[in-house]
Amino acid sequence: MPTAVRPFWPPLAAGIVLGLVLLLTFLLNGYGLGASGFFTRLTAWLGGELAGPVTQANSYLGPFLKGANPLASWISWEIVGVMLGALLAALTGGRFRLRLDGAPRLGGGGRIALALGGGVLTGFGARLARGCTSGIGLSGSAPLAVAGFLFLIGFFIVGIAVSFLTRRIWA
């Protein structure tokens, strides 16, 4: 029973609701929203399972393996929630479809390569910045942290610059 494709929310409406969700999250947990923290914990957990001694000895990921399971954390439940919420929105909006999305001018192999490559840069960059678009960009800028705005300046300037190279395949 496929639902007809419903339009996206207007950006102003989506922005106001997102701002209220972010505010609610600050009042609930004192930290705001995030995302990359989960992938750091996922990496630590995978490292612990696949290469225990190396990961435990690692000065960055090692501390995550001390104490409880690194996945037992607020941010892991938040990402589970993100996927449930997005699934609900996609299903009710008629926008759920199994597909290999990506740069329209590329075939499957190219799309997978770009997704992997972009993911590597993002994974590395989010650790360097101590957070991602959600954790630093959004949740850092809302309490007016200099770090949040500095992150967003780097994000937009370099995103636009790199996009000059990739626009031929993405447009």
């Binding site: 995302a35 992938f39 960059g125 989010a126 910045a129 370099v158 790199v162």
Partner: peptide, 20 residues
């Protein structure tokens, strides 16, 4: 902070997403 933001921006321009 600046370089990390830049890499996340480059990652989105190439791969299409950010972590969230």
């Amino acid at each position: 902070t600046l370089t990390g933001g830049a890499l996340v921006g480059a990652g989105m321009a190439i791969g299409g997403y950010c972590p969230g």
